[in-house]
Design a protein around this nucleic acid. Structure first.
Length: 257
DNA sequence: ATGTCGCCTACGAGGCGA
């Protein structure tokens, strides 16, 4: 089974590219982030015509997470228990479903904006709570094949950005964010892509010719539980998806299990 | 170069978010 995660940056704008990727890669389950639409705006038909069912959560033009899958989604969960709010609103940043016994989360971690912005503590709290809820799940259901997949908006290593000096004083690389990321490893998850592909970016800003210059960031991850990790046969970062007409600024990250 | 892109409102262009 092929599983992938991809921040598509608008599923409506990107529908042809997303379906093209699904078909050419033979992906069975795709976790999407930043679909940027409400349920009545989702381009269901194009996915259904390609043989994929949609499980989505979107509230407005921002954020939004979903799965496209060839197999049925079971035990769908919108958000996670105690998910922090921003301005009294639980944003559309998390959805889970079980596919053939494998529990998958599609996650769009808050960006954080700047270190002095209220979105920054919100990001840290959001990650903290997600780790706590995931730890509970792993304790209650040890042995469950589970993966957290998505755009974490954190570059865990200095080599995950093209120039660490450029990011001095910025989000994505602070000790606090990296500690929040490491917490997922401490509760027993492992980055199943890093083990196989130590280097490589998953995101290049549209601005400043970042992609032609290969000035990117590695911020999209698949973090698997022990029983998920042991099923993984191979992994990939689909860099070529950043090329051509109308790409997302992120590329798919995939595993075969 | 403040070098892009996508969404909104509301019909042109500015505001917001990344």
């Amino acid at each position: 089974m092929k599983i992938a995660t991809w921040n598509v940056n608008s599923v409506r704008t990107r529908v042809n590219r997303v379906i093209g990727f699904l078909e050419s890669s033979g992906t069975d389950v795709l976790a999407m982030q930043e679909i940027k639409c409400k349920p009545d705006q989702f381009p269901y038909k194009a996915f259904e015509d390609a043989g994929y069912q949609i499980t989505m959560h979107g509230l407005n033009q921002w954020n939004g997470v979903a799965f496209a899958s060839k197999i049925p989604a079971e035990d769908i969960e919108i958000g996670f228990s105690g998910m922090p709010e921003f301005k009294q609103v639980q944003e559309a940043r998390a959805i889970a479903a079980t596919f053939d016994g494998i529990r998958l989360w599609s996650l769009y971690v808050p960006n954080g904006r700047t270190l002095d912005d209220p979105h920054f503590p919100y990001k840290l709290e959001w990650l903290d709570r997600l780790a706590a809820v995931t730890a509970e799940t792993l304790e209650n259901e040890p042995g469950v094949p589970l993966a957290l997949m998505g755009d974490f908006n954190i570059a865990p290593l200095d080599t995950d950005v093209w120039d660490i000096n450029f990011f001095a004083g910025s989000t994505h690389v602070t000790p606090e964010e990296r500690q929040a990321f490491e917490a997922f490893e401490q509760i027993g998850l492992q980055d199943v892509v890093r083990l196989r592909i130590p280097e490589g970016y998953t995101y290049w800003d549209y601005q400043q010719l970042r992609f032609p210059r290969n000035e990117g960031m590695r911020i999209d991850f698949i973090l698997g539980s022990e029983s998920f990790a042991e099923k993984v046969k191979s992994a990939g970062i689909e860099r070529d998806e950043r090329k051509g007409e109308g790409p997302s600024d992120h590329v798919p990250v995939v595993v075969e299990i």
